[in-house]
Design a protein around this nucleic acid. Structure first.
Lengths: 402, 402
DNA sequence: ACTAATTTGTTAAGCGCCCTGACGAAATAG
DNA sequence: CTATTTCGTCAGGGCGCTTAACAAATTAGT
């Protein structure tokens, strides 16, 4: 079985390797990396058994990966079984690292993650970016990035790529922000405004969040629907371990699925979109609160205290989510629906009505609904990990770059 | 011991050939077949240029495919350009053929298609199957199949596979009909009731219809949403040239997407499902007609005559389709929506309201809506072609079977 | 008409990649 | 202490594509 070649959009390496011996070699190098990454320290023989190659072939692959410092030899395994003990191989903690960055409405964040998946450095700056012009915001982000990169370099890490999560739609070139309403950014190419050196990938925060769920989630299936809300409502569809992007890169826009065709007008031009019932502004209004800092925390706190207006508002949002998700589930038949972002924190008050609505509108057993453990950390971690995945997906490519 | 080469389901999900030299060889054989199939007669040099291999390599691949009678040498091409003219290669008109079969509510149909995609034999039996027990129906279908296979054998064709389209949900094993309400079949394994010889694949008629659209449509994109209605409303999602099936194989159930959360009750347990507005029964009732033979023809005829009740009913169905499709388009961002099956014949009266609804609910340019040229022929052709695709996808596999 | 240039298809040599089979090394079992 | 098992490596070989060269078949130019 071939390892899942990571989606084409983040990073240019998603291209299919050619059907030549070199391409085969590169795919097999990738299969070794994926196997070791997924199943902890493993001997050459164990890897060979898993990817269906001979020990001899795996030996040469591993030699090369060690020479490139992508794998490390940990030494002899603790015996336990009969026979000569194998020599444990592990993903290296040095070498390439993924840099993830997030442009939030109320903060900036950057982190670096090594090939093992361990977060090695972080930097955050709080304060609103709403309506600020892009240049100063991205200059601040660049400073945070340089700080994180420098910190990594002191530990023997070099940046293999930079992935930036933004709260808005991103074109398929993975550089241009088409529309980010809460930042008031439009048709903006981030390339020239960020460091030129590590290759850049920009994507929607909901997309990165769903990838984080896929890669880091506890037992997230390979087919699921991810719903996350910050200000608007974002969704992402993961099919067979791959993120579905759509022709223009706009797939997953759950927020503008019609819930009631004659409902209130929406900025998108439609009527009764989900966002009119479960978006932050709508929920706050229904709860009798005014928008402000940390609105989500406010909602959770008051709901926990049992304030009926807030509970009823969240219940209504859950019902609307349930209706919109019924349509999505009928269309996609996912294994699960995962609530992420701000929805994770509010899940206790959303789930009952959401699940009730989903169940009563579904023939047979309804789709399972899970709550993300990552919450608002998802987009940042997903961004950093997406870089790591491109390295695992084609280790030979990064070796060429050293 | 050879590894499993094909997914049970059609749609060529199963390009999971191992990363060994043999796997590479088989993939390259497939690439030659696909290239010749897609771009008509081609010289060895032209194929080599397209699939990025050397002429020498392509020569050996072609030799093998000719020895297996999957390719034919047509002889020297008409010159025109400077240089030695190439020798044109074409897909063979002999050898393996795909057998497609359709269990409709009102008919049975079988056809065979050669590797070139040409329909070589057909057989049809009219008469309702509604509520009949499966055994006699499938016995009749078997008789038609044998007839079509025999006809093909007289022309040097042998059946490489049998694909059966049914109006209902099919489990992922591609043999078991889980639920076909209009036939009143439930949890029925078709394997034992059909000829054992050509390998069997069963799938939903909407799925096969969408594949036909993908493979045979005029300029159907690789990402589209296919909507077809016979009695119920079926949908199918094609992403990057692959059919999206969902975990249980139930993806594409557009008919039960909620259009109005407080609408009329539906058999599925929900309320206001699309089928309650645009299903055959609902449209006939709204038009003041009673269900019967050829209801679709009736509707089209009366609408063409300008009967206001019928036109209004179809317009309402179009509006409901537009609302449901708005949600689907927001979620998937397809390149186009294609109306197939009975909807193709009724498109002139559905399209205006459908497109209006889609446009006014979409920010930016709305998704294009196209009408299928195949209409109700889609499922049968898609089934037969799905067999042909499995041959093109792994020609070495059929060579082993001779 | 004749030569030069161009393109095709084939052939032989070569290289890369994995497999087979055999070996020494390092552990356990008796 | 010996037999057994498993691991990692090495040499030899097969397979598949590439490179390079060549003959064949056509057009372009003089």
């Amino acid at each position: 079985m071939t390892p899942p070649l990571h989606d084409a959009h983040p990073a240019g390496h998603g291209r299919r390797l050619p059907d030549t011996q070199q391409g085969m070699r590169r795919r097999n190098l990738a299969r070794v990396m994926h196997t070791v990454s997924a199943e902890g320290p493993l001997s050459r023989a164990a890897v060979a058994a898993r990817i269906d190659l001979t020990r001899a072939a795996v030996s040469t692959l591993v030699d090369e990966l060690i020479r490139w410092e992508l794998l490390e030899e940990l030494g002899p395994e603790r015996p336990g079984r009969v026979g000569r003990p194998g020599s444990a191989l592990a993903i290296s903690g040095h070498g390439p690292a993924g840099i993830g960055a997030e442009v939030g409405v109320d903060h900036l964040a950057v982190c670096s993650v090594d090939l093992r998946g361990v977060v090695r450095a972080r930097a955050v700056r709080h304060g609103t970016n709403r309506g600020r012009p892009p240049q100063p915001v991205l200059a601040e982000l660049t400073a945070l990035i340089r700080q994180v990169v420098a910190e990594g370099e002191r530990e023997g890490l070099w940046p293999a790529g930079l992935a930036v999560a933004v709260p808005g739609l991103v074109a398929r070139d993975a550089r241009t922000v088409v529309r980010a309403p809460n930042l008031d950014w439009h048709d903006l190419d981030l390339g020239p405004l960020l460091p030129g050196e590590p290759p850049l990938t920009v994507d929607n925060e909901a997309n990165f969040g769903s990838l984080a769920e896929l890669w880091l989630g506890d037992d997230t299936p390979r087919d699921f629907l991810h719903v996350s809300a910050e200000i608007g409502i974002g969704g992402a569809v993961v099919v067979d371990g791959r993120l579905l992007r759509g022709t223009r890169g706009f797939a997953g826009e759950l927020g503008h699925v019609p819930v009631d065709p004659e409902g209130p007008r929406c900025a998108c031009g439609g009527r009764g979109c989900l966002e009119q019932y479960a978006g932050e502004e709508a929920v706050l209004r229904a709860a009798g609160l005014t928008p402000g800092e940390d609105s989500v925390g406010q909602l959770a706190e008051r709901a926990a205290r049992g304030e009926t207006d807030v509970c009823r508002a969240l219940g209504g949002a859950g019902t609307a989510l349930g209706i919109a998700l019924t349509g999505a589930v009928n269309l996609l038949d996912p294994e699960a629906v995962v609530l992420g972002g701000a929805l994770a924190a509010l899940a206790p008050w959303l789930l009952p009505s959401l699940e009730r609505e989903l169940a009563r509108r579904t023939a047979g057993t309804a789709c399972a609904v899970a709550v993300s453990r990552l919450g608002s950390e998802g987009p940042l971690l997903g961004a950093a990990h997406s870089v790591v995945r491109t390295v695992l997906d084609d280790p030979a490519a990064v070796a060429e770059r050293t």
